[in-house]
Design a protein around this nucleic acid. Structure first.
Lengths: 109, 109
DNA sequence: ACTGTAAATTCGACAATGTCGACTCGTCGG
DNA sequence: CCGACGAGTCGACATTGTCGAATTTACAGT
C-alpha cells in the first residue's frame, strides 16, 4: 500500500468538504457532492469512504453538540488534512497535465 | 449497470489515448500515462482496463501490421469512441465544477 | 420517565476497479 | 529453425465504490 491514488469518488468527497468550509458536516457535504457530481450518493458509499479516508489520514473530524436544531445526534464537522490536500493537488496536477492541449475535445452543448 | 462513472485510472487511460492521436498504440499510451501521471503502470493493470473499457464501449481498436519495425505482433491502435468522450467530458465537468472557487488550495510548488 | 420524531450513522454483503508479474504468442532477421 | 523482442494473456488478489434497512442519539412534549 502507501502511495495508491485517490479514487474518483474520494477526490470528489474531499473537494466537497473543502467547499463546505466551516459548515462541512455530513448532510451538507453529501448535498454539495450530489449537486456538482450530478449523481446520487447513497449513505453507505458516503460514510464508508469517509471512514476509509480518515484511516488514511486524508481527513479528520470533530463532533459538535447540535446547536438548537430539532432532534438528532451531534454533528461531525469534517476537515481535509494537509496530507489530503496534497493528494488532491497531485490528482489535479495529473489530470490537468493530461488534458492540456486537448481542449478541442472538450466541446460542449 | 450502465451509468457508473469513470474510475481515476480509466479516465487517465482514455486521455492518454487521445493524446497519442494516430500513434495511439499500447506502449506509446503507456509511456504517455506514466509520464503525466507520474506513476508506474503495470502491463496487467493497463491491458485489463483497456479490455474493460472496450467492453463498455468507451474505446475500440484496429490492428495494423507492423510497418518495418524489428519484431513483434501487429500493433493495436486505439481510439476513444464518442461515448468514451462523453464520459470524459462528464468527469471533467464534475471535477471542474467542484474545484471552482477553490484555487486558494491549489497552492504552488 | 416515556414516547414520538428527526437526524446521523452503522453494518454486512457485494459489485466494480485497479494491480501484479511471470509466462505465452507472433513475427522478423539471420 | 532459432533467438530476440515487442505485444498480450492469465489467475489471484487488493482497494474502492454501492446499497438500504436497521439502529443509535438526542430533543421536545406529555
Amino acid at each position: 500500500m502507501g502511495k495508491s491514488y485517490l479514487g474518483e469518488f474520494e477526490q470528489m468527497l474531499l473537494l466537497a468538504i473543502l467547499r463546505g468550509g466551516d459548515d462541512a458536516y455530513a448532510l451538507e457535504i453529501r448535498r454539495e457532492l450530489q449537486e456538482h457530481a450530478g449523481r446520487r450518493v447513497s449513505r453507505g458509499a458516503f460514510y464508508t469512504t469517509l471512514d476509509r479516508m480518515q484511516a488514511k489520514g486524508y481527513l479528520r473530524w470533530t463532533t459538535r453538540p447540535i446547536s438548537n436544531a430539532r432532534g438528532g445526534r451531534p454533528q461531525r464537522h469534517f476537515q481535509v488534512t494537509e496530507e489530503g490536500l496534497e493528494q488532491l493537488r497531485r490528482a489535479h496536477r495529473a489530470l490537468t497535465s493530461l488534458w492540456d492541449g486537448l481542449d478541442q475535445y472538450l466541446a460542449q452543448s
